[in-house]
Design a protein around this nucleic acid. Structure first.
Length: 429
RNA sequence: GGAGGGAUGGCUGAGCGGUUGAAAGCACCGGUCUUGAAAACCGGCGUGUCGAGAGGCACCCAGGGUUCGAAUCCCUGUCCCUCCGCCA
């Protein structure tokens, strides 16, 4: 959520900045609600003050009246009147505050100055490339064909037991999948200073409000049929970032977590997109990096975090490029996002494998995630960041395709061999 | 699943329906003292929100209710603890 003070004190400037992402801030609605809020709040608080003062004086007044043998009913009646007036004012104020709050909850974050202009993914800007896409001297197969030979990658049986957009992995590929997870976790904990956390895969509504998936993106989530309003997590970002909801972080910042979780997405609105293969699934695994940092450190932290994700691809010798998302393509809660795209030979292009974002204080404000600034001694909002490090299914896909040989076998990257009991290649048909 | 007991400021922990936004201790900050530190002593010290400011308002798990007045009474929910049962 944006700082309400900023929005009401400078609505035109905020609207201008939000237009960069194609969002139209309803300034007149906002101003009108704000005006109502102000006058109602004034009135309510004045009445509350009156009631409080009156109630305070009542103890003595009643005692005095009783001693004098007077009727105390009139004293009570005045209190009753005040009570009712306060109630009414409070209700009106609450209604306006709710309207204001629910509007603000659906306003996206202000994009960073460095975010390129543009309204579609075509306007994203490439920052850097690493590695050379391999030249193949034989017809390239995609991972679906490569995996189908020994049933290592089986979409049909997954359809039977669940439905479309699910996969079953078997044998070497299942092991490779597990190896990737271990490898990523080990790298981030041992080399990049992250603490590993294991978290719930089911979260409540408050958690999703905190990170910004709700209230606006309910249709992307799997909701459980349960009166407790449970949802399957769409990313580890939700449980991990919520670790510090309504918290004043005591640890020295930055606090860095890495977590491996499954992710569940209904992918509403993506029908017909990437229907083949592992790219877009209802269930996939991800190793996620999350950081809580001092506000003045978050820009640097995003560069660092992105480099941590890139390090995995470098160790796996998978060619990639890093792009910065333009205003129109950036996520709801993010101020700045780098996508890392890995080379996918069968598609002859780079495809997203990680998304690293700085949310500034946007999530922190919703979460009430704070730290105690030693300079002021006061609790202040901190900044949150996260990034995939990496999406496991897509990494598996990239390995299978980039490391394929003419006979359909797949070479195991050196970095993964220790996790594969020394296996050198996954044999072809 | 059954039976009890809890939830108060960064932590521990008092709190009679009215003078309690909240005792006390710890921690923390400032000062005195000291060559320095510790100890001792003095003072300060919750969060949010509105306001230019003075100051106001809200908050004692959450939501309802009773009352002129609720941290204190009632109801519902959530979470935690103890005992019994069951269980990967």
């Amino acid at each position: 959520m944006l700082d309400p003070k900023l929005v009401r004190s400078n609505p035109e400037a905020v609207a201008e900045q939000l237009s960069k992402r194609g969002f139209k801030l309803d300034v007149s609605l906002l101003m009108e609600l704000e005006e109502q809020r102000r006058s109602l709040q004034e009135k309510t608080q004045q009445l509350q003050a009156e009631r409080n003062a009156y109630a305070k004086s009542m103890g003595k007044a009643i005692a005095a009246a009783k001693a004098a043998g007077e009727d105390i009913e009139p004293l009570k009646a005045k209190g009753e009147e005040l009570k009712n007036a306060v109630h009414e004012a409070e209700k009106a104020l609450e209604a306006v505050q709710n309207a204001l709050e629910s509007y603000l909850l659906e306003v996206p974050n202000i994009p960073d100055e460095q975010v390129p202009h543009g309204l579609s993914e075509d306007d994203n800007v490439e920052i850097r490339r690493w590695g050379e896409p391999r030249q193949f001297d034989f017809p390239v197969q995609d991972h679906v064909d490569l995996g189908s030979t020994d049933g290592g990658l089986d979409f049909e049986v997954a359809t039977k037991i669940a439905g479309s957009r699910f996969a079953v992995l078997r044998g070497h590929l299942a092991r490779l999948h597990r190896a990737l997870i271990q490898f990523m976790l080990d790298t981030h904990t041992a080399e990049h200073g992250y603490q590993e956390v294991y978290v719930p895969f089911i979260v409540n509504r408050d958690a999703l409000l905190g990170t910004g998936q709700l209230p606006k993106f309910e249709e992307d989530l799997f909701k459980l049929d349960d009166e407790r309003e449970f949802y399957l997590i769409p990313t580890a970002e939700v449980p991990v970032t919520n670790l510090h909801r309504e918290d004043i972080v005591a640890d020295p910042l930055p606090v860095k977590y890495v977590s491996h979780t499954p992710c569940f997405r209904s992918e509403a609105g993506s029908y017909g997109k990437d229907t083949r293969g592992l790219i877009r699934q209802h269930q996939f695994e991800k190793v996620e990096l999350v950081q809580f940092v001092r506000p003045d450190q978050s820009d640097a932290a995003l560069e660092e975090l992105t480099a941590h994700a890139e390090a995995i691809l470098k160790k796996l010798a998978l060619p990639f490029r890093t792009i910065i998302l333009c205003g129109g393509d950036i996520g709801f809660s993010a101020a700045r996002t780098y996508d890392i795209e890995v080379w996918v030979p069968s598609q002859n292009k780079y495809r997203e494998i990680s998304s690293c974002s700085n949310f500034r204080d946007f999530q922190a404000r919703r979460l009430k995630a704070r730290w105690r600034n030693p300079d002021t001694g006061k609790p202040e909002l901190l900044h949150t960041l996260n990034g995939s490090g990496l999406a496991v299914g897509r990494t598996l896909l990239a390995i299978v395709e980039n490391y394929q040989r003419a006979d359909g076998s797949i070479v195991i990257p050196d970095a993964l061999k220790p996790y594969m009991a020394g296996l050198e290649t996954i044999p072809g048909p």
